[in-house]
Design a protein around this nucleic acid. Structure first.
Length: 828
DNA sequence: TAGCTGGAATGAGCC
DNA sequence: GAGGCTCATTCCAGC
């Protein structure tokens, strides 16, 4: 037992097995109960003693009975583990134990163990207390505020955050958790003294001059106190027993997901504590497994969940459902300098016209206040998820008029802000700052795949949970809506130096080029270049061409360029490329989509955009709903106006040009944000309508081109049944229980798509009425760095493709395959 | 006095 | 390997 000096500890790795390997007798002697111990509780429940350091408040698990091990671990009293010659850590001991429903009586009347045919052995039930505070595992569970300005506040509204539900984790994840427990004391390499290589996950083991809050504030490690405060009413925490266990089969459950799941819904009824015996053992009504991470996810998940099984934070959710509509009335500024733990607060995120962002829930007529959750999400091309390097920060002070409550959910800090009917369900977000976590800390996290360097763009994500009542949904259901802001640049320097493209006057033109294109934005220099480029499906640069800039017509806010001709004039399909503004090496704007049209289309389709100059002023419309086709197309060509730096319309700027599912009704839409607008039941048929057929028939717009013949098993035919989970959230996206036919059935091979970023969407998967023509979502480049802030799922609905186009693509691909392995439909 | 804000120093890593 | 540059992080000062 014990780690050899430097074996792991020095490199930020402390293997779980090192903790487990111990004297079985010792473990046995300390084992109080093998059958019913909920290790998670034992992991996180110990009250931290004063002076305990981050991650040391709760002992990591150890293997209890090696010789009798049969998938069983048990929480054991803390013990000392020598991790080096000079360091001895007090680590917890846990025992993973298989608990059958017979072993555990469950809650009163409890059916929460009932996951449909018995729950999966080999799994652990953990309480919701999250060991990954700030995601670096250094902080203890619970939801205590690392913010120096934070303080508990009363909660007069319903908040789903931070309940004390149980967790279901894999052993592997437990290992990870344990590793984090043990890692935390040394996981504070700092900069500038201890920077890591850009491509190395290992940070220098230097010590911060000031440390971090997680180190300096042992109170932050206290468990449960704030969690109890912040949780919704009548959470299972009061029972101190696992409320539920999400049964999964093929998947794992990530900490984020798990924790989200623990969140209690806004319902306060005691019935919420109990789980209705799920007929198929499902907590989620309709959740398609994720597409490949890094790909655009097809659509938001169903926003309706059980009240005790709210969606994880990394699940895409619509911002509108039925009459309910969560919208950002006032967008935050595109730049906010986040503060480090070592700094004082840099204040709340502000809105560009002054003031602060405003979020409103439309369509809610009940008198019961709700809670609006705010967290910091990513702003890259992938679906929005909690940003690993940033956390929301509760700002307090005399200038802050909005009450808020901090909580933790799967390592992500949330702010709960009341949505009161008295305020017309409008919340002024004047209490939300952004905290920057040190890259080295986060990158040390096991399983963290993102790199912090230059990953400085975030979004504010707002989420609320509405209790639904029949006939909208069965009792006990909660509607989860989410809306994300436009990207916010959080670095100090970038906003001052990097060019920002806010609008372009043209989204497409003939492959011959030559059209005049106005690029609006900020930080343009006389030497700024506009570069068109194309990347292949492998992410490699295939073509790059610099556009000629008319300096006479260009200003610091507008670049007037000529669209260069495409490399291949004989293409017979639209070609999506990217353009960006470069102020020099490493000073590039985010990329924006541009489409080259085949010559054959140039004069055939009257609906095709005219390549004449369009004014930069305008409103970006939602291309997916209730819009005349021509309007939509025209609307796609432009971005909202931003006449001056950080001065933009309430709707904010659209960082990514490609069409996004913003809403067109008014200018207050948070276009550009990840708004799965108006999914309706149509778009939620990713299982939802299959599971709730008679009572909740699909409604909304009939898909014009997708009659959607009934399929006895549409899921099994769905390309969304990807078996490749997120690399960083390997378990978050397949919450189906073993009893679910989805999870137990072999997944069909994914239909091959000739467009790597445009999976072939079958009829059932078309969320929005597709519009014809070529203005559907363009394929996205692979290169994530280049497409930083580019669309993807976070930026654009990948559903803008008609069935005919899908068939066309597939057909062409098949033909291409038949004629030759590399007979591209786009010669050249 | 605490919090907010802007600027800049520092140092590691990259080119 | 040196030097310049970029970037992340920290510190300082003014309001």
């Amino acid at each position: 037992m014990g780690a050899a000096p430097g074996s792991g500890w020095e490199e930020g790795e402390f293997e779980f097995k090192l903790v487990f390997e111990e004297d079985p007798q010792e473990a046995a002697g300390a084992a109080p109960d093998l059958s019913s111990t909920h290790i998670g509780q034992m992991i996180t429940s110990p009250s931290p003693s004063a002076g305990q350091r981050a991650g040391m408040h709760s002992p990591p698990p150890r293997r209890a009975l090696v010789r009798e091990f049969s998938g069983t671990y048990e929480s054991l009293p803390a013990r000392s583990v020598q991790v080096s010659e000079s360091r001895v850590l007090e680590c917890p001991s846990i025992q993973i134990t298989t608990i059958s429903p017979e072993d555990d009586p469950g809650p009163p009347g409890g059916s929460y163990w009932d996951t449909g045919g018995g729950w999966d052995r080999e799994r652990l039930y953990l309480p919701l207390l999250d060991p990954f505070c700030y995601r670096d595992g250094g902080m203890g569970a619970g939801s205590l505020s690392p913010s120096p300005a934070s303080s508990p506040s009363s909660r007069g509204w319903l908040s789903p955050a931070s309940s004390c539900d149980s967790l279901l984790v894999e052993e592997e994840e437990l290992n990870e958790a344990t590793a984090h427990f043990c890692l935390s004391p040394s996981s504070r390499p700092t900069s500038p003294g201890g920077k890591k290589r850009r491509n190395s996950p290992l940070a220098s083991p230097c010590t911060s001059r000031r440390g971090s809050y997680s180190e300096e504030n042992p109170a932050l490690l206290e468990v449960g106190e704030n969690a109890g405060q912040s949780q919704g009413p009548a959470s299972s925490c009061e029972l101190s027993i696992p409320q539920k266990a999400r049964k999964t089969s093929l998947e794992q459950v990530s900490s984020r997901d798990v924790d989200s799941e623990q969140s209690t819904g806004p319902l306060s009824e005691p019935v919420q504590l109990r789980r209705d015996p799920p007929p198929v053992g499902m907590d989620y009504l309709s959740v398609p497994p994720a597409l490949g991470w890094g790909r655009t996810r097809a659509s938001a998940h169903s926003p309706i969940f059980r009240s005790n099984a709210l969606p994880p934070l990394d699940w895409p959710l619509p911002c509108q459902f039925d009459q309910y509509d969560l919208r950002i009335e006032v967008q935050p500024r595109p730049h906010h300098r986040a503060h480090y733990e070592t700094e004082g607060s840099r204040g709340a995120v502000k809105a560009s016209p002054g003031g602060h962002p405003v979020v409103k829930l439309v369509g809610y007529t009940e008198r019961q206040p709700l809670s609006l959750q705010v967290f910091v999400g990513t702003a890259d091309d992938r679906s929005i998820r909690p940003h690993p390097f940033y956390q929301i920060h509760r700002v307090t002070g005399k200038m802050v008029g909005t009450a808020s409550q901090e909580s933790m959910q799967a390592g992500t800090k949330l702010l709960d802000i009341p949505l009161n009917p008295e305020n017309n369900m409008t919340a002024l977000i004047d209490c939300a700052g952004i905290l920057k976590l040190r890259n080295s800390d986060i990158e040390l996290r096991k399983g963290e795949t993102d790199v912090g360097r230059k990953n400085t763009r975030v979004r504010l994500v707002f989420r609320t949970h509405l209790p639904l009542a029949p006939p909208i949904a069965p009792p006990g259901r909660v509607l989860a809506l989410q809306v994300a802001s436009l990207p916010i640049e959080c670095s100090q320097r970038s906003a001052q130096e990097l060019p920002v493209v806010e609008s372009i006057s043209l989204s497409s033109c003939s492959v011959e080029g030559g059209e005049e294109l106005l690029v609006g934005g900020t930080n343009f220099l006389p030497a700024s270049k506009v570069v068109f480029m194309e990347r292949g499906s492998d992410g490699k640069l295939q073509w790059e061409e610099e556009a000629h800039v008319d300096r006479d017509k260009s200003t610091e806010c507008v670049l007037c360029v000529r669209v260069p001709a495409y490399s291949d004039l004989s293409v017979n399909q639209p070609v999506s490329v990217c353009l960006y503004v470069s102020n020099g090496k490493r000073k590039r704007s985010s990329t924006h989509c541009f489409k080259y049209l085949p010559i054959m289309f140039k004069e055939e389709d009257p609906l095709l955009p005219r390549p004449s100059l369009l004014p930069l002023e305008g409103v970006t419309h939602c291309p997916v709903r209730d819009r005349p086709l021509a309007d939509d197309r025209l609307a796609l060509f432009q971005l909202p106006p931003y006449p001056s730096e950080f001065s933009y319309a309430p709707q904010g700027y659209q960082d990514d040009f490609c069409p996004k599912p913003e809403c067109p009704e008014d200018g207050s839409r948070s276009h550009g944000a990840l708004n799965e607008r108006n999914p309706s039941f149509e778009s939620l048929e990713l299982g939802f309508t299959e599971l709730l057929p008679p009572l909740y028939p699909p409604r909304g717009v009939q898909r014009p081109s997708s009659p959607a013949p009934p399929s006895p098993s549409p899921w099994l035919d769905s390309p969304y049944l990807s078996s490749s989970p997120s690399p960083s959230h390997s378990s978050s996206l397949s919450p189906f229980p073993a009893s679910s036919p989805i999870s137990t059935s072999p997944l069909p091979p994914l239909p091959h798509s000739p467009y790597p970023h445009c999976p072939p969407y079958p009829q059932e998967m078309c969320s929005y009425p597709p519009y014809e023509g070529w203005e559907h979502q363009a394929p996205l480049p692979e290169d994530t760095e280049e497409q930083e802030g580019q669309l993807g799922f976070s930026g654009a609905p990948p559903m803008h493709i008609t069935l005919e186009e899908v068939n066309e693509f597939i057909g062409e691909d098949i033909r291409a395959f038949q004629t030759g392995p590399h007979t591209d439909s786009r010669p050249g």
